[in-house]
């Protein structure tokens, strides 16, 4: 499972990096989404996967018995997914409005703010 997840994370990072280097706005936003998911999966995997052992204290016991799944990475990912969703939704709207205002989705043509006048 670890191995499979590592491969998937690698693919997501690779695809995300490739996509944000493209000139088209749509591809850039897809790339950002890939990178966000890759980071989430990375936290998930690196927090050590433990199968079928939720972090609940069994009835009658005082403490948790090893092994149990660390709940913290899951909490982190949940937060990160929610934040990522909000920010990506904003970015998609922003990119659409930019396309409408500037009239192109080619990043190489959006350099009026960088030019020396």
């Amino acid at each position: 499972m670890n191995f499979l997840l590592a491969i998937i994370i690698g693919i997501l990072y690779g695809a995300g990096t490739y996509m944000i280097l493209r000139r088209s706005l749509v591809k850039v936003i897809l790339g950002l989404i890939f990178l966000g998911h890759a980071a989430n999966l990375l936290i998930f995997t690196i927090g050590r996967l433990t199968k079928g052992a939720p972090a609940f204290i069994p009835q009658g016991a005082e403490t948790l018995a090893e092994p149990y799944a660390d709940p913290l990475p899951q909490a982190l990912i949940l937060t990160a997914i929610v934040i990522g969703f909000g920010v990506q939704a904003f970015a998609i709207v922003l990119f659409k409005r930019t396309y409408q205002t500037v009239g192109t989705d080619d990043l190489d043509k959006m350099k009026s703010t960088d030019e020396l006048k």
């Binding site: 950002l32 966000g36 936290i43 690196i46 927090g47 913290l72 982190l76 959006m110």
Partner: peptide
């Protein structure tokens, strides 16, 4: 809009890197 595209893209990228670093550091 043109400025914001660059600002938003690079800051989202940096957030993704930050998040990955947080994950590895926790590990």
């Amino acid at each position: 809009f043109e400025g914001a595209i660059k600002y938003v893209t690079l800051n989202l990228l940096s957030s993704a890197i930050f998040l990955a670093a947080v994950g590895i550091l926790y590990g």
